[in-house]
Design a protein around this nucleic acid. Structure first.
Lengths: 352, 352
DNA sequence: TTGTACGCGTTATCAA
DNA sequence: TTGATAACGCGTACAA
């Protein structure tokens, strides 16, 4: 930062006090109209830009909200960010973006950095192997409002915005069961992260409800990306004919895409040989061949609600934590082989 | 922000001066080992978190870099952000993310906000209707380093990181010409933004080089999203048989996807009736049916180079502006009907 | 090795 | 309506 124009400079220029300048610049009362005019002109002429750093220091409020994203490249998260931004923009907050890259170490570091930056609150979706909750507790103890989204940690007294992952997974798995699939595999997320746990549990519930025994060997941890989905399919596809799964419920769409590629690479057909389902409703889901049946998570809305909740916490000091559940939707396409082509809005409608 | 522990608090607790505490916490020399140990213990015990705001104020350096993104939901930009983040993380910079939403007003506001936040530098890709360069000039005049990426403004003395848009568009259009297409349309970006201008120019050059007259009615401004691409196709598809274009070069992939949908909705085939090409290499390009021939822009690398260049400017005061050209690549898939299936890395390899 | 004085740029407070 | 003073939390410069 080079030499910058300060209120002091403007005050000196006009032969008045810096307080009057400050009042004029901030549209505060008790300033003579003529004086105000002179101040604004001088500010423009000198190229004054308010120093928000100094303002934050004295006001003890930065108007900055921190975000911790586990995987920037995931479409879901970029949509959440878009939702968050729309709300924070309206409320005059800025966004400090950090990336944990699925690492708990980097996540902890990010949270500490955000606290150090004195953000007014933090929006976070945990890294996939989250295990130690101390860093969250500490932030909360220092009264930094925290709101989780999608990947949550419950019982910390922090709000969380997410879909009903368990019920959604149950619904998806039940859909396969009801259409006659017998050996339904699950590509699972890491079991430490909320959505991994919940989606697995929903899958189990669906099987149980329909009297299908839970077979541990049909559950393979894939993680959340394409490569993981691809690799997790190997042990399942290596099974002999008749022992191979006839359907796969993936923990999310990227994993499902990887699985679909693995299935095709073996020369098998989707859904005739193996049906596939996912989670997210990634833009690719309607373009992949065949279209991917999936649970649509309204990412933009999740971002909006999370940001609103956080700002609410910020304003009310410490409002009660809420568990906010956003409704999801089963989108049926051809990958599940269940006939109905209940297509989602086509591409042109994805644009704003 | 609630009541926070300060260096003063620690100093009082230990009966020493705040300077010694500051030195100890920052790993500076001239501190007795025993004293340092005591300070670090007390800091941990009291839950001290450095106030980066105060530090920034006194050091006149925030270690924050501002980003201005025209369209968060565009895959290309989320990849750029990922690249930027990888560099800034390594160098200890934080990211303040702003969104112009393609509005020049919001963009100007964003830049002023970032200046107000005293970011050490700004990375920006302009809004599509950029026309007034004053806000950039002012930022530069106040010695806020500025680096453009993808959508640039030249001749301002700011660095710019981008592919060779003109040459890439020329290459793509020439590819169509060489494969016998005669009536090649162009879905153009707004003509005010660099990539809109350059890509149109490359398209013209390719036609000219092959003796095909430039037909203004074959150039329709689509903007950068799916809906724009879809709608821009209407006048082209409304032409009678024989006057319809036999190929379309879209300004980017989202527009190309919209165009493909429009073509299919008319019951026409790709590429037999109309061939399509795009720009970006969006993840959907290899999944759409048929696969989209496109110019691959290495988004991640663009982000990396832009961030490196900015940090370089920050460190060297004001190094010379550079025009940094990242090499792009023509990825041939089936949408251009040119045979060669030069497939890009498959999905599983997209993951990190 | 440790401490004192001061300034970073702004606003709140209280006095004029 | 305006101004003087102090404070936000920290680090630099210099003194002890």
């Amino acid at each position: 930062m080079g030499k910058r124009v300060t209120v002091e400079d403007i005050a000196r220029e006009l032969g008045i006090s810096s307080m009057t300048v400050s009042r004029a610049l901030n549209n505060r009362p008790h300033v003579n109209d003529v004086t105000r005019e002179k101040v604004l002109n001088a500010a423009k002429r000198l190229g004054y830009v308010q120093n928000h750093i100094a303002k934050s220091l004295v006001l003890r409020k930065t108007n900055v909200i921190g975000i911790v994203i586990p995987k920037i490249s995931h479409f879901f998260f970029s949509e959440v960010i878009r939702g968050i931004e729309s709300v924070t923009f309206q409320h005059g907050y800025q966004l400090l973006l950090t990336h944990s890259a699925e690492s708990t170490d980097r996540e902890s570091q990010a949270i500490r950095t955000l606290e150090s930056q004195r953000v007014d609150g933090i929006l976070i979706s945990t890294a996939q192997n989250v295990a130690d909750y101390d860093v969250y507790r500490q932030a909360l103890a220092r009264s930094t409002p925290l709101v989780f989204f999608d990947r949550c940690v419950f019982d910390l007294g922090a709000s969380c915005v997410h879909i009903d992952d368990r019920e959604s997974a149950r619904l998806l798995a039940a859909h396969f069961v009801q259409h006659g699939y017998q050996r339904i595999a699950h590509l699972a997320g890491p079991h430490l992260v909320s959505i991994g746990k919940e989606r697995l549990e929903g899958y189990r519930m669906a099987l149980e409800a329909h009297g299908i025994p839970y077979d541990e060997s049909l559950v393979v941890t894939s993680g959340f990306n394409e490569r993981g989905g691809y690799e997790a399919m190997a042990p399942l596809l290596d099974r002999p004919d008749g022992a191979r799964p006839d359907a796969v419920v993936a923990v999310n769409d990227p994993a499902a895409f990887g699985a679909m590629k693995a299935i095709k690479d073996r020369g098998l057909r989707i859904p005739q040989d193996i049906a596939v389902g996912g989670f997210t409703d990634d833009p690719r889901a309607e373009m992949v061949e065949p279209g991917l049946t999936t649970i649509r998570q309204p990412a933009y809305e999740i971002g909006v609600r999370a940001a609103e909740q956080l700002i609410n916490h910020i304003n009310t000091g410490q409002a009660d934590a809420e568990d906010i559940i956003i409704s999801s939707q089963l989108v049926i396409r051809r990958s599940c082989g269940c006939g109905a082509e209940n297509s989602p809005p086509a591409s042109p409608d994805r644009a704003e």
